[in-house]
Amino acid sequence: MNMKALWFALCATIACMGAQSASAALNNPSNADNKTVGAVSQSKLSLNKADQQQLEAIPGIGAKKAQAILEYIKLNGPIKDKKQLMEVKGIGEKMADRIAGFVSFG
C-alpha cells in the first residue's frame, strides 16, 4: 500500500469512526482485527465535506487538483456526481472515474 492510499485510509477512518474512536484504535493496534481493516477499505470520503489534506490523500490528486475541487465547490455548491466532477478544471473522465472510487458525493 503506498503512502497516499494509507493516508486516505486513515482519513476515512477518522471521518467514519470519529476522531476519538480512531485515536483509540491507532494508540492500541493490538486490538485491530480484519473486520476493522475491511471497513476502512470500503469507506468513502465525502467529497463535498473533505478538506485540502483529505483530498490530497486520494491517489492521483495533488495540491492543485484538491484546491480546484474546493474552489469549484465554493463557487458552484456541492458536486452531485461524477459528471459534475468533470467540470472541475484539470479533471477529465479517467481522473473522475479514479476519484469516484474513493469518494461519495452526498
Results as ranks from 00 to 15, higher is better:
L70P: 04
S46Y: 09
M3W: 11
G77W: 08
N27G: 14
K80I: 03
E87S: 08
K44G: 02
F8M: 11
L45Y: 05
T36K: 10
C16P: 01
K94R: 15
A25V: 09
G18Y: 06
I14Q: 04
V103L: 01
S23F: 13
K64W: 03
T13D: 11
A22P: 05
P59N: 13
S104P: 10
Q54D: 01
G92N: 08
M95L: 15
P78M: 02
V37D: 01
G106K: 15
A66F: 06
K65Y: 11
G101H: 09
L10I: 14
K49L: 08
M86Q: 13
T36C: 05
S104Y: 03
E87N: 13
K82D: 04
G90L: 01
I99G: 01
S21Q: 12
G18E: 07
S23G: 06
E93H: 09
M3Y: 08
N28D: 14
L75H: 10
S30N: 09
E56D: 12
L6G: 03
E71D: 15
N34Y: 09
I61W: 02
L75Y: 06
A22I: 05
F105I: 04
K65N: 12
L6V: 12
G60S: 15
Y72W: 15
A22F: 03
G60N: 09
K49C: 06
I61A: 08
L45R: 07
A96R: 10
L10N: 02
A39S: 12
L10R: 03
A32T: 06
L75P: 00
Q67P: 00
Y72C: 06
P59Q: 08
R98M: 11
E93K: 15
D33S: 12
A19W: 05
A66W: 04
P59A: 12
A50C: 07
P78I: 10
S104H: 02
A57H: 04
V88I: 05
K44A: 03
A9P: 00
G106I: 07
V37A: 09
Q42P: 00
V40E: 02
K35C: 04
K4M: 03
I61Y: 07
A15V: 04
